[in-house]
């Protein structure tokens, strides 16, 4: 399988100060890389840097062998990232938010795809509601649906389990595994040992020194922390 993501001696942080150790990792197509660590370890900063949301302090990130350029159309086509951002169009319904993504990615039969995702995420009954009328968990589902409705070869998920009920966590695990089976690469930041064990093939522990373990070791680290 081809390498999708490659981070080489990547140092991330704010205002010139690194938040964690150097990250060197590659993720192949079909792999799920779990990323774990205590609060403030720098997991989300690593994810944001890989997603092109912030510049690295040093080192580099390549996607499909090319240095990332978050403003380049090909990068935006290939990389989907879901962070915990509660920003929605206040006057657009749930269905319209998803239609916007489906049409923007030129999906075939976007309306049908949207209905499938609404059903999967349990939002069919709230499809015509605006985001302000949704619960916190439903808004989280909408964000995840927006990230998963579109095609991508690299999927970055920052703690997707947040605000979700146990059933939906299991369902999300299934979607992540399905994405990998279909040939996509996934970077999964999580505090949920079950989700990690169910999906990840490798696990990166972010700390002052970044180390790679098998997922069961990562799960025990989460449980211990």
């Amino acid at each position: 399988m081809a390498t999708v993501l490659e981070a080489d001696r990547l140092v991330v942080g704010y205002a010139g100060s690194p938040v964690c150790g150097e990250v060197s990792v590659s993720v192949r197509a079909g792999e799920v890389l779990g990323v774990v660590g205590i609060n403030g370890a720098g997991k989300s900063t690593v994810a944001r840097t890989i997603a092109g949301r912030q510049a690295p302090l040093s080192g580099h990130v390549k996607v499909h062998g090319l240095l990332i350029d978050p403003d380049a159309v090909p990068f935006r086509r290939e990389v989907a990232a879901v962070f915990d951002e509660d920003l929605f169009f206040p006057s657009l319904t749930v269905r319209e938010h998803l239609l916007l993504i489906a049409r923007g990615h030129s999906l075939d039969q976007p309306e049908a795809r949207v209905e499938e995702e609404l059903a999967f995420f349990g939002l069919a009954g709230r499809a015509d509601a605006v985001p302000d009328a949704l619960s916190s968990g439903q808004r989280r589902r909408l964000l995840l649906a927006a990230g998963l409705i579109r095609p991508s070869s690299l999927l970055i998920l920052d703690e997707p389990e947040q605000r979700l009920d146990p059933q939906m966590r299991v369902a999300i695990g299934g979607r992540i595994a399905h994405h990998a089976r279909a040939g996509g690469a996934v970077v999964l930041i999580t505090h949920d040992p079950q989700l990690l064990l169910a999906t990840a093939s490798r696990c990166l522990v972010i700390d002052e020194e970044v180390q790679e373990f098998k997922p069961d070791k990562g799960a025990s680290i989460i449980a211990g922390s």
Binding site: V73, A80, A81, E85, L87, F88, L100, G104, A146
Partner: peptide
């Protein structure tokens, strides 16, 4: 910024 900018357009 969340819904338009990541689109490959």
């Amino acid at each position: 910024s969340t819904w338009w900018l990541p689109l490959p357009l």
